[in-house]
Amino acid sequence: MPQYFSRLLAGPSSDERLQETDFWHDRELSLFSCPNDDAGQALTAIVFKISRNPKDLLTHLRRIYFCYDRRLSEQLYAALLDLVIVLDGKGNSISRRMIQASQSQLHGQQYQDLLKTKGPEPVGNRYSLFSKGMLGRRELVRSIQQTETQHDYLALANDFIEYSQLEQAMDVLETGINFHHDRPDLQMALLELYKSTKNRERFQINRQRFSDSGIVLDGEWLELANYFEGQAS
């Protein structure tokens, strides 16, 4: 098995790797009646799901892993680029982790282009869904804000929690709150993770960041702040 999870996730055991492989497998591919060894049809099915719902983050991650696992380097670059475009500057920790885990199968310039945070958008290839020439960034973001489903972030975070990947779960929830200012379920799930991991520093950083962004924070944020102050005294 490729050492993808050792780069992306924190030291899984052999049993956990088997579970994680199942996690990255998209069970809905069976609806397309494509055999397991037909990589082209399976990838087409994944890409089709993303084209219908660009903010389905779990399918984005499965697309990236699928391309990495089968050493489809150009398709992998396109999958990573599409994730970066969809996140639109948010969730940088998620996209950066995926890019770094995929470095061995990217050309040097591709890797650098994907990681850069300033300048023009990286050039896509024929496998890219959302790079320039297909949809402009503003048009894409406006479209996905109108059509997105709201359960993806919490479902993806719960998947990461199930496999004890708590840092990744916090990444997802923090990104979700950026997109969905009015979803208390995302805030509550994130606060529970901050408290259970005793991650006072991350809590303080993001509390300030959300406030500076104009996001209205539930009263539980103040309660957790007082909790951490009591723990420090």
Rank of each mutant, 00 (worst) to 15 (best):
N125D: 01
Y163D: 07
T147P: 07
H107K: 11
L190K: 00
K116C: 08
L140A: 02
N178M: 08
D212W: 14
G124H: 05
M134T: 13
R183C: 03
T175D: 01
G108I: 08
Y163N: 09
K198E: 15
I205A: 14
P120R: 12
Q105L: 05
I144V: 11
S164K: 15
Q145C: 13
G119Q: 13
S213K: 11
E220N: 05
N199H: 14
E167C: 11
Q204K: 14
E174L: 05
V216R: 12
Q109L: 07
F210L: 08
G136D: 09
I205S: 14
L190V: 02
D182G: 07
Q105A: 04
Q208T: 15
Y163G: 11
L217K: 02
L173A: 00
A169R: 01
G133L: 04
L173I: 06
Q103V: 05
S143W: 07
E148M: 13
N158W: 08
S131V: 04
Q204N: 12
M188H: 04
E220V: 04
P122F: 03
S196K: 14
F130T: 00
G214V: 03
L173K: 00
N178Y: 05
Q110L: 05
A169F: 03
Y153V: 02
Y194K: 03
E192Y: 08
L193Y: 01
L135P: 00
E148K: 08
L222P: 03
A189P: 00
F130Q: 00
G219S: 10
Q150G: 06
A157H: 00
M170P: 05
F160P: 02
L129W: 05
V123H: 10
Q204L: 15
K116Q: 12
V172I: 11
G136V: 04
L191I: 03
E167F: 12
F179I: 01
Y163K: 11
S213W: 13
L135F: 09
N158D: 14
L115E: 02
H107L: 11
E220A: 04
D218S: 10
Y163Q: 12
I161A: 14
Y153T: 02
F210N: 02
E174V: 08
H151Y: 10
H151L: 08
H181C: 07
G108T: 06
I161D: 10
S128F: 00
S102V: 01
P120I: 08
E192R: 09
M170Y: 03
M170N: 02
G119F: 10
D171L: 04
G133C: 06
F203D: 00
Q110H: 09
L156E: 04
L173P: 00
Y194P: 04
E139T: 11
E201M: 15
S143Y: 09
L186I: 01
G133S: 08
Q145K: 12
Q208Y: 12
G124A: 10
P122G: 06
Q112G: 08
R209Y: 13
L173N: 00
S211L: 14
Q187T: 04
L156Q: 05
L129N: 03
R207G: 07
Q109D: 07
T175Y: 00
R137P: 02
G136F: 03
G176A: 04
Q150W: 09
